[in-house]
Amino acid sequence: MTATTDIEGVVAAVWADVLGVERVAPTDGFFALGGYSQQAVRAVHLLRDRLGVAVTLRDLMSAGTFADFAAAVRARAESGAPARPVVRLTGRRGTR
């Protein structure tokens, strides 16, 4: 991913895809647009996949608007932390 990657564009495309909307405004909220928890998880996983950035579910839950969330994603991208792989080994991990 380069400095010219259109992060906001990718985030908007993922929101539009997951939420079934045609366009997303900077002031739109994920849940205000009708999103719910399982969709939030899906959006985060899609973004990790597409951007290779370690976006977290908490990033999305804490962001008030699309603009806030896109900024959080950009901050993660610029900090350089790679995304954890989305597909992980299955199996019991014992009690925690």
């Binding site: 998880v41 977290t56 579910l57 908490r58 839950m61 992980r88």
Partner: peptide, 10 residues
């Protein structure tokens, strides 16, 4: 639940 520690924790 997705096999994702952060999601599971939430």
């Amino acid at each position: 639940v997705p096999d994702d520690d952060a999601v599971r924790a939430m």
